[in-house]
Amino acid sequence: MNNIKNFSVNKKRNIFLRMFVGGIFILFLIYVLGVFTSPIKNFFYNFTSPIQRSFWTAGESSSLFLGSFFRGGALLKENENLKSDNQKLLSQVAILQSVEQGNKAQSDVSISCQNSGLKYVMAGVIGLDDNDILSINKGSADGIAVGMPVISQESVLFGKISQVYKNFSKIMLVSNKKSVVNVKIQQTADALAVDEIDGVVKGSGGLSAYLDLIPISSEIKQNDVLLTSAIDKSFPKDLLVAKITQTQKNDQKPFQQAQLSLFLNVKTTDNLFVITNYKQPK
């Protein structure tokens, strides 16, 4: 009887000892892996980058193919909306053309001043993590550093570099819950006078974001376009960010909010541009 009791106590001790040793081993492993995170990740990304790129391209082709089946009705409606928008825009273009000639010289100068000296590094998109973080195939070896702004070919702001390894980097998208971007609102073109309202775009996850901190007295409306402002100097000014889809005004609150449709579209973007020499305040 005593022997059985001893055996049971020994067995329990044995299990406890194994769990203890196992736990210590796992903690040690985490510590060692944490120390060598950067070279290990870089090593794997280096040789898997072409494979990831192939999977990315395959995903794009498949989504286009399947999308044509599933989104037939939606595309028809979208096409009608686009036609109607196009007609409105054509009439506005006619008005703007006359104004444009007078402003051309001035705007050319301001654009060249604004864009002068900005250097870009083109990078291929290779993956999308959860929490709205995008991977690109360029890293510190190409001159990329944390905090650099990332835009698309159409000057749409995607976000900023959040992690850099030797041969790849991670971008925190504008839609990430930790992202806050200062913006100014460009009113839609029925009134040609440009009225600037300042606010901030906050990421809400799931590739979406909302507009916040707009004074309750300011008039904002659907389809107003948001551009980066130069207030905090994290990003160059006048980059496209989003369009207002729905305003949310409550007179009891000091600020109003709005739902947005971000211009960034991960699914139609193969290449992005990292601005490598934009000076940020320290």
Binding site: W56, S62, I126
Partner: peptide, 9 residues
């Protein structure tokens, strides 16, 4: 690879 690249679409 499927998770981070293919299913991003």
């Amino acid at each position: 690879f499927l998770q981070i690249s293919f299913f991003a679409y």
